[in-house]
Amino acid sequence: MLRMSDKSAATPAVAARTAIAFRGGGFVPGRSAWAAAAAFAALLAAWHLASATGVLPALFMPSPGAVGIALWRLAESGALAQHVAVSLQRIALGWSLGVGAGLACGIAMGLFTLARAAGLPVAMALFPIPKIALLPLFILWLGIGEASKLATIGLGVFFPTVVGAMAAVDNVPRSLVRMGQSFGLPPWRIVFSIVLPGALPGILAGFRISAAIALILLVSAEMIGAQFGIGAFILAAGNLMQTDQLLAGVALLSVLGLAIGALLTALERTLLRWR
């Protein structure tokens, strides 16, 4: 019979027992709620201090307060809403066109041998061209208006979307497709019930990359030839040495980027609850 050892019985000789010290942990990162807020506060405080003491000359690097005031004035005058609206429209439209076409091509290349054999080398050859280099050509073709900017953004997100969507389709486990075939599901039903839902996580991950590319191309295109839009505003402020306005524009871009990221996170949370 087993018996639990009894402490009083086990101490005739004063045999020192060694405790096994905890030594695990596995370098697992912990959590700290205040560190992030403290880092931001420290950064702002250092910036403010440097501005107040004159280490940062106001003409080249205005204080955080001055940037805040510039933002406030822009909002009050309605100029902010106008620039943001124009930029949002461009990025939404350009991104949607490029991603729509890219998804169609990429999914086709994931599904069909011929589409892949023909399309992949072409996509790979054109993928590395920085698409902003084509803007002058698009301006010649389409004029200085909206079309050339949309074409640049659209083309810029098209190729990464093609490659990403194809990879997402590839990553759907073949065993699931074979399962569908073993139950006699027709091919179109396998595509819609198995392949596309299975590729969705990869496709949504690709949206993050293409949105970042679209934002870069938006600002670049607006700096080359536009009256309105955040990129045009930043360039104009720089030309006039209005650095407070310039930084206000940069702050807006940062907010825009964060907002797009949050939107995509919300989309993933809703569509990929099963993960």
Binding site: S175, L176, F183, G184, L185, R189, S193, I194, R275
Partner: peptide
Amino acid sequence: LNPVTYVFQDFALLPWRSVAGNVALALEP
């Protein structure tokens, strides 16, 4: 409905479908 039917080693379930939805898949054709 499907004379020769498989049970898979790795289960081959669709992770985005419920239990009933996974079973229903076999009836869909």
